[in-house]
Amino acid sequence: MNETDKSRQSFLAYIVGGVVVLIFILLPVSMNVGRYVLSLLFTFFIYIVLSQSWNLVGGYTGQFNLGLAAYFGSGVLSCSIFYSSGINPILSLLAAGFVAIALACIIGLPTMRLRGVYFSIGTLALAEALRLTVTNLWPTSLYVPATHYERFTILTNYYMALGLAVFTIIVVHLMVNSRIGMALTAIRDDEDAAKSMGVSPTKHKVTVFVVSSFLAGLAGGVFTLFRGVITPTFQFTPEWTFGPLVAACIGGLGTIVGPLLGSVFFVILQEIFSQTLGKMHFIITGILFILVILFLPRGLVQSATTIRQLFKSKL
């Protein structure tokens, strides 16, 4: 592939991406899609944000953060608290993102010193500690002001989630295609070599971790405005880490398309089986996940490339 090929390809990607976003924008106004489809797409958008956020750390720096739920949960909780204390909902939403950043700085940064498996179990342990603490401090449900349901229809929530998903993809795209992206790949491939060339691993890992937390926090805020009533402890459960992780791994680590593809897959699978088997879809997801890790370590995206190459070589 030469440079013009590559730029043509990314041009094509922009066009496709733009058309898809346009379809999502026009969908609710042009068709009478109903609450069910909109909520499903809402979930899908939140999954895109969370899996992109997870992938930013997991895929691009190779550090598997098992504590994403803490940042999502803190976004949900703080947005709810700000909102119910009379602050404007949009400001509460933004504040949720910054609370997640603050959390990343206080409890996340110490774990940045950990490498590999230590990082993973450290983040998981802190997320669980936070979940238990939150459960103790806010054992009951939290409510948004009564005026909320007049201001926010399902359509508003839909567009907010769509907007956040698009924002997330743009942020991730800009980041990984900048000099920061080069440094991240270098660090992931060989930390010592990166250091020897003047790349500071800590600085870059921290940057990415903070951005990732910010996105997860915003996702939490959007989720709060969708749900209205929230029970904090449920938003801190590891499921909120595991879902995005599975989506990113199945789709393809370290790519932007991967988490998108994985989210489609995950949300559809969840929806199909939740009608018939309830939580049992996790069994199928789990098996699929294991198979992907073992046989397609770079996810469905890679297998798409492999199949395309196979065709090319045949022709």
């Binding site: 080069m182 440094a183 790949t185 270098a186 491939d189 060989d190 010592d192 070599a193 003047g198």
Partner: peptide
């Protein structure tokens, strides 16, 4: 210790981006 997933060219670009006189 090459950056295994990057192209040869990008390996060198990292040096230009982050080295002594970036």
């Amino acid at each position: 210790k090459p950056f295994g997933t990057m192209t040869v060219f990008d390996n060198i670009v990292v040096g230009r981006l982050y080295g002594n006189e970036p």
